[in-house]
Amino acid sequence: MLGALIIVFREVIEAGLIIGIVLAVTRGVPGRGQWVAGGVAVAVLGAALLAVFAESISSAFEGAGQEMFNASVLGIAVAMLMWHNLWMASHGQEMAASMAAVGHSVTSGQRPMAALALVVGLATLREGSEVVLFLYSIVAAGTSASSLLLGGTLGLAAGAAFTALTYYGLLAIPTRHIFTVTTVLIALLAAGMAAQAVQFLDAAGLINVLGQRLWDSSGWLPQDSIVGRLLHTLVGYTDRPTELQLVAYIATLAIMTLLTRISGSSRPARAAT
């Protein structure tokens, strides 16, 4: 039971952190609840399907199908996050003005909800399929279904509580700072995902440059620890990054900053600071 609780909790908080941020970013957008819930629901179904087809995905692309799949999922999420920040840079000002005028309850309804719902869905899909495979694995090993159900439910509840904590924590940020904070958060989220994506491409054998390890901070802050995992999802913390990962990380931040500037906003882009 404890095993199920821990694994489910661990996967749920990784997706939950992203869901919490997206909910905070889209505060006041009409219908955002449906978008996010829809993204999660579709992804949970997708995760079950993914687990069923795990074997065929795994053997695709000469055995590198799983890595290719993960890299693609992360790549799409990075693109969606970039688009969101770009959109915010060009529309953020008018939104900020309208928020100041009518209080923060009314915001433009045409924000790129679909892009963020997709990001939520992709995060849930990746973590969810691991949960499904794990639960199947321990059921098949003979753990009783009721014990599994209890552990899984407790893990899910704890993960959901953590998501709520992230959300309300972000809401505590004063309105005038929220744009800057979420822009930076999303840029860091995207940079971390890009760094993970290139590592999957490296594991697939697709790219093989700059594979040297840059440093090893696993002694101070292991990536497997809870704090390490949270920072891994949030800002892309890696205890043994390769040169390529750092390049991907910095390049993503640079591209996002550049795009945000070009999009004509007079708001200074703070993504890289």
Binding site: A54, E55, S58, S59, G63, A64, Q66, E67, E130, L133, A140, Q199, D202, A203, A204, G205, G211, Q212, S218, P222, Q223, D224, D239, R240, T242
Partner: peptide, 21 residues
């Protein structure tokens, strides 16, 4: 995390992971 590898291997099957140098 030391080898920077994370890979699901379905039951009764084979997979290849690559790491290093």
């Amino acid at each position: 995390s030391a080898l920077k590898v994370e890979k699901v291997i379905p039951g009764k099957s084979r997979a290849v992971v690559r790491f290093g140098p």
